[in-house]
Design a protein around this nucleic acid. Structure first.
Lengths: 213, 213
DNA sequence: AATGGATTCTGAACGCCGTTCATTGTGAAC
DNA sequence: GTTCACAATGAACGGCGTTCAGAATCCATT
């Protein structure tokens, strides 16, 4: 029964092609410029055909969100593999900022558009891409704590939240307040990590870690 | 020649009414839900009439941006008046987060929508609302430095950028990633300031400042 | 090979949107 | 009373997301 399989394959292929073209459009002109009509034109189908593969425009955006997030996760991998926790922090922050600045429209789509587009990244499922990547950040601080380099009261989860907010702030401000001419983002990211790390109450070789950069 | 004045007054009044209604719409349903037609309906004029007072929809948004920013600036005032720099930092961060969470749609409009809407807040003019409010943050670190509580190498401007990115990150992540259930934002804001402050290399009574909260 | 039925696709339409412009109405100035 | 400036409008243009009845295509059955 190879026919049914072929049909299924073709169906999946078209779906994939739609997503590819949509991704290109978003990355080139932003999510707002993604229109079902232009998208249909680009894949050479009638607009109505798109609705056989996606519930609506938001469904396409959600899919792009998920994939964009996977890209972010992939960009994290080398940094996440670093052994030394402090160095890992610097590398993670650097990777995050780099991703955001190099793929601004993807970043906007994931973290700055309608909440509806990114909810499923963080909703419930503890094994979703969102929680997993956030877990990478939490783990850094847990490792620090396990190594006895953090105070007893230190809460890895909260510290991870603060770090995430910091790098997200750096990226998103740069994407929106383009008129504001600030220092280079990667430089600020290092400063953020430095102050954060040196500020952790019981981090013993704080000064050394900073000087290492 | 009171007639010309009356006409001018009425003209300004209508303009103001349009902005009032537009502001309500944005605050209630977000910027995306602000349509020229609904706005015209609400003020009981034809859509075309709006264009006698504003170049286009973006012009209205820009005006709302400026006013929203002034509100933010006003929300800063009590905190900015605090003498002690560290305490001032905590208060400023607290005020910023509070504003963002209480007026989410206004905050989105200013800091998370199209860069075109907020450029004029930060463009060129060093006496604009943007640079002035950022200056409040810079001043905190300058005061710290002047009091000899910061290292020679410390750069107030960059530290202010990091702090701003931090609080902006806290607010904007909460507005967009609603699925992610994190710790209370005000708590994280305090943690951010604490780590930032305690991490400043030569801040003498660092531990004391932290315990003061 | 012909027929029937399921699936894929589309054209046309609906109701929105921002924006423009020729036209109308109104009130002040002469 | 007439003229003139200007506020205000209705109607239109092109674009948008989305829906749906019908056309076209393809496969399995006879």
């Amino acid at each position: 029964m190879g026919i049914a399989e072929r049909k299924e394959r073709q169906r999946a292929e078209l779906r994939e092609q739609i997503l590819r073209v949509a991704r290109d459009m978003v990355m080139r002109e932003g999510f707002a410029a993604l229109s079902m009509r232009k998208l249909a034109d680009a894949v050479e189908y009638a607009p109505a055909t798109l609705y056989l593969h996606f519930e609506n425009r938001d469904a396409i955006a959600r899919e792009l969100c998920v994939r964009g997030f996977q890209d972010l996760l992939a960009a994290f991998e080398p940094a996440a593999a670093v052994e030394e926790p402090v160095e890992r922090l610097y590398r993670l922050a650097e990777a995050y900022v780099k991703f955001g600045l190099e793929q601004p429209e993807t970043y906007r789509l994931i973290f700055m558009e309608d909440p509806k587009l990114s909810t499923e990244l963080f909703k419930d499922a503890p094994d979703g891409a969102g929680p997993r990547s956030f877990g990478v950040l939490v783990k850094v601080f847990e490792d620090l704590k396990a190594a006895g380099r953090l105070a007893e009261e230190a809460e890895p989860w909260k510290l991870a939240e603060v770090l995430w907010a910091g790098v997200h702030g750096l990226v998103s401000l740069r994407l929106t307040c383009t008129g504001f001419k600030g220092s280079p983002a990667d430089e600020l990211a290092r400063l953020l990590v430095t102050t954060l790390v040196n500020g952790l109450p019981e981090l013993k070789p704080a000064r050394a870690a900073k000087k290492a950069r």
